[in-house]
Design a protein around this nucleic acid. Structure first.
Lengths: 143, 143
DNA sequence: ATAGCTGCAAATGCTTTGCAAGGCC
DNA sequence: GGCCTTGCAAAGCATTTGCAGCTAT
């Protein structure tokens, strides 16, 4: 790893609150708790349900509706990125930089592909007056 | 287009029935009708609902449960390919060859990218003793 | 005959919504 | 105070399932 090990980058409440305010969100108790789980640890892939259990098991009292709400507003504000892999549930990625994924069909797990391990030699022009908003590469692997 | 124009390649019932039997499926009235819509016309992207309306509007009497059933068995038999784009619904592609897609975020429509317009210069090795089963590239565009 | 299919309706599972109560600025 | 948030329970949707009745072989 050439970058800083983010797993140790715990953020103080003040920093987290600022981060939320920066994107125009009020730092409520619930959002602070979720932001702490999502943004102050390393890069991760989560689902609504996994975030809910994680919060709950940490003694944080949040409703599932708020989880969905947070996941979507965070995504809209650019703090998270949504990944479409499996039509059964939505995955969210705390890494918002352009990068790609391995998807393990057996376990349903996602894993980042090292950025320099995938390279698109040619990307088509967007049709008409449209513009490319994002390029996603998913490599499905099985045992 | 350098390939044969498949939109004109209507198949006879006999051919279609054989195609189904080849993969171990009984050519029932419903499957024949769906196979006709799916396999004897050009390459297309469909959803359960779109296939249902198309069948219904052609006077074919099929239940939605059978549509889902057919979509999944056809996919399992390699007659279709499932595409994960949008976690709200499943898309199926009648083109089972390796190729990639444009996804129009505004309309929710899918479009094939000409095969030679995308090129992956580097694809990572699959982890461990796993093997790559498929590589999907989705280019999201908006107006 | 019989294993495979189909269709209905009920059930499921994830996600969204309506709306009253509560919290941040 | 006023607007944003939350949470509950109900609603919504796409998809799946149970199972009785049909159908291809």
């Amino acid at each position: 790893m050439t970058t800083v090990d983010q797993k140790k980058l715990e953020m103080s409440d003040a920093v987290l609150a600022d981060k939320l305010r920066e994107v125009g969100l009020r730092p409520t108790r619930q959002r602070m708790a979720l932001a702490d789980i999502l943004l102050s640890q390393g890069k991760r892939h989560i689902t609504a349900e996994s975030l809910y259990s994680e919060a709950t098991s940490q003694g944080v009292n949040v409703s599932l509706a708020t989880i969905y709400n947070a996941l979507h507003t965070f995504t809209a504000k650019g703090l998270l990125r949504e990944i479409s892999i499996d039509s059964n549930r939505s995955y969210f990625d705390t890494n918002t930089e352009e990068h790609h994924h391995f998807y393990f069909e057996k376990s349903g797990k996602l894993e980042d592909i090292e950025p320099d391990h995938v390279k698109l030699a040619r990307v088509p022009d967007a049709p008409d007056g449209m513009s490319i908003s994002r390029v996603d590469v998913v490599i499905r692997v099985d045992g």
